[in-house]
Amino acid sequence: MNPELRRRTPTLRAARVILAKDLRIELRTLQSLSAMLLFSLTTFVLFRYGLDRTSLEGSLASGVLLMTILFAAVLGIGRLFVAEREQGGFDAFALAPIDGSALFYAKVTAQLIYLAILEAFALPVFAVLFLSDWSGLGALTAVLALLNLGLALIGTIVSVMATNSRARDLLTPLLLLPLLVPLMISAASAAAPLLDADGPSFAEFPKWLALLGLYDLIFGLIGWAVFDYLIED
């Protein structure tokens, strides 16, 4: 009766297909990942001399780590949609029997994977280079997980806007950084006590995790609601 409904690809399946395509291309070229990893390492070296410190603790440590992750993430976020823009992916998705949110899920997940790989590399390097006490690192991964989700959600919204504008490279950091301020405040406030020289303290930990979670939730809902408006022509 309704021939137009006969071949709709389920959204999660379509998202998985797009994600697999992105990961395959990334694995083949290593464009984003290699840039992010290299950038983080260089930044640590720069902080070593910029701050003239060989060991860090507390808020200084969390600041160095989180700023490095943030700016490395910006590199990846800027490239999330470049292939779709330059090679016609947006048109192909609009013609295919898939929901626009499939693209959103796929790109958020791709960015989450890149960030996890970045941190799997950068966190040990950071600990070896700067930290004397490693006991807070376990709890720190929970902070990073929630931070990553926020970065990926906001990053995906901003990236699609910047990619479809004529000031792509300019617009990504310009829009992204102010939007991430509350997220970075929460993550830094949660991470600083974990990196104290005399062992981690957890007094305010739940409060900041809750705020990180709230941020992720709200921008997840917004991203999901507005994404269709961002990809139509």
Binding site: R8, Q87, A94
Partner: peptide
């Protein structure tokens, strides 16, 4: 949305990924 999947388009852009 009713058109999705029923239209084939052969435009100026090849809609192909260079790295694949």
């Amino acid at each position: 949305w009713q058109l999705r999947g029923r239209v084939g388009m052969l435009g100026h852009a090849p809609l192909l990924y260079r790295e694949l």
